[in-house]
Design a binder for these strands. Structure first.
Lengths: 354, 354
DNA sequence: CTGAAAGCGCTTACAG
DNA sequence: CTGAAAGCGCTTACAG
């Protein structure tokens, strides 16, 4: 491995000039630039990143923006933990991180935090773009400022984000359709429960439902699928509406909840003593885990949210420091979690490297 | 963050002395040592690892020892890839890696490669200790030389390995029991197929079978479970023996293969036109994937083998450079893979960060 | 036992 | 446009 000094000697210039060429900085005559480039290429020069970060004193800053979680029981606590762990790792290499949060049910709070990031003027941004229209509008600011950004968890097509890390929602719904079809014969009815809140914000929910329905149309076409929309996830409302459903239709043997709120349904099923209903939901967090362990919730679909946060920060870090171009998409796995493997869900407990 | 220079000033010594104290090197009077330590503690000094690795020119070497894989289709190709990716990452920080392989059916080849590692005299070793007795014997050499080592994939209790990364085999068998029980009612017979080859080497296989049987005893106690042992995984032998089984016992509706060779059984099931048999095996590799996509294999249990190799190297790296003590055990997840989520298995395709 | 100084491979004012 | 030199924060011979 050649050093800058050796390159400089070979090209008959000073190390300062080599540095200018390597980083495409101005102040080098075209002729010299070409000569140095040729030597650089000849030896396939790779700069020593250790020496580089030691000498480079300007701090790099990465900003992150995800929904806040009130407690470790919630879904968003995992991406948050991934972000924090990655941040601690890259701190050693002189990269600073600032974390911003927003209320996942309030576009206004998203805007507010986003503006703080614009004021900070970081070198790169990680965003969970839950609000479609709001994001589209705000993201332009990053683009005019030439700040690279990455999306996690939710993707928004046609943006200039350098990468996306998250699950293929349609396919996860399709898989959910298969799982319930394996345990419920075709004459059993399945109920899909969603909330209005979700309708406004998460496109992911739509895709999950579409995948679920498509699976059934393909493989169990005669299955009856019913839909239930609730205003919120308030226990009373769920209880009343579910009771109605079961009175009208006692063929319902399975429930598909395409959001992280399966535990709310599970709670009501316990109440109504309907524990044999097969219940499939999304996301591994404390509230869901409790019902999974009692097999009120039978299946959870998991997407390694810790990894989404962790990988997102790491990708930005390598992009900034090593100019490493990431893939356009990193698909999170679609993991099937049941009582018997919940204990080993990645990074769920203290199973963390750093 | 204080620097060594600042600590030196505060303690009224030179930076060399501070360095000696930090690294517990000899040549410092007890009195001075205490004084410096006090200042170090007072400011909670953390050394700048960047500057440290730049100045530290002695190369660190990590050796790895896993079964070789002839092609990217085999299981061991994934831990190998994880090891390579991690090795490339830590190369930047001046850590060298040497990779050794052995034939997973030949203890002799294990010994041969192990001896090469002893000759190399590396700073740390990653091992997949497939052969119980052989490992026990050889590992002592590492201990007398005071070389730290880590196990991946297979654990051997009571050794001085600093960490183990792998799946809980018993629990994975228990989960397999549940999966087949969900899709096969209790009166259906299940066949467990294992090979002699495995009996000699893998304790993991025993644990998987035990877990599988325990689940059934607990939840479907009246289920009939049959055992079939084959000498090798030669197609002809499998075909003959399976034919016998199905002639004698046409209640067999499920097969549990507690190794990565489910594709060999799948091949024969295709031949015999017994595609409706539910077949569950282990490990995601090309040969199994093909049968999973055609739903001849219905389920595969996966353990994120890429991650085992990757994490193993990273843990040794952090142990050597930052003196970071790893957990005793990192449990690999027990992932359920079916046709509908195979595409998104972690790191399966080019879904890799580095 | 202790310190002064050179050096690791880059980056960055500064001078010309 | 270009180079000489100082400096990033450690580590390591070397001298005393």
């Amino acid at each position: 491995m050649k050093t800058i000094k050796e390159i400089a000697e070979a090209a008959n210039v000073s190390t300062g000039t080599v540095d200018r060429v390597i980083h495409n900085r101005p102040g080098v005559s075209p002729k010299t630039r070409e000569r140095v480039k040729a030597v650089l290429d000849k030896y396939n020069f790779q700069k020593n990143i250790i020496a580089s970060t030691l000498a480079f004193k300007k701090e790099l800053t990465i900003a992150t923006l995800i929904p806040f979680s009130n407690s470790s029981k919630e879904f968003w606590n995992e991406p948050k933990r991934g972000i924090i762990v990655a941040s601690n790792e890259i701190q050693k290499y002189g990269v600073d991180t600032k974390h911003y949060y927003f209320n996942q049910f309030s576009p206004e709070s998203f805007i507010e935090s986003f503006n703080k990031i614009l004021d900070l003027n970081p070198n790169a941004v990680l965003i969970s773009p839950i609000f479609y229209k709001t994001t589209i509008k705000l993201i332009k600011e990053l683009e005019t400022k030439n700040i690279p950004y990455i999306f996690i968890n939710t993707d928004i097509a046609l943006q200039q984000n350098i990468s996306f890390i998250g699950q293929n929602s349609y396919q996860s719904g399709f898989l959910s359709g298969k799982i319930l079809s394996q345990v419920l014969s075709e004459e059993k009815t399945i109920l899909i429960v969603r909330s209005r809140k979700n309708i406004d914000s998460h496109q992911a929910i739509d895709s999950r439902i579409k995948g679920f329905i498509d699976y059934n149309q393909l493989h169990t076409p005669s299955r009856n699928i019913k839909h239930l929309t609730i205003e919120s996830f308030a226990t009373n409302e769920i209880k009343r509406k579910l009771t109605n459903e079961f009175l009208c239709n006692n063929l319902i043997k399975g429930i598909f909840v395409p959001s992280s709120y399966a535990y709310k349904i599970a709670n009501v099923l316990c109440n109504l003593n309907l524990k044999s209903i097969k219940l499939l939901g999304y996301d591994v967090h404390k509230l869901n885990i409790d019902y999974l362990n009692h097999e009120i919730i039978d299946f959870l679909i998991e997407q390694e949210p810790f990894e989404q946060g962790y990988k997102g920060v790491k990708i930005l870090f390598e992009y900034l420091l090593f100019k490493k171009k990431p893939n356009r998409t990193y698909n999170s796995p679609i993991n099937i979690i049941v009582k018997e493997n919940i204990e080993f869900v990645e990074n769920h407990s203290e199973n963390v490297l750093n």
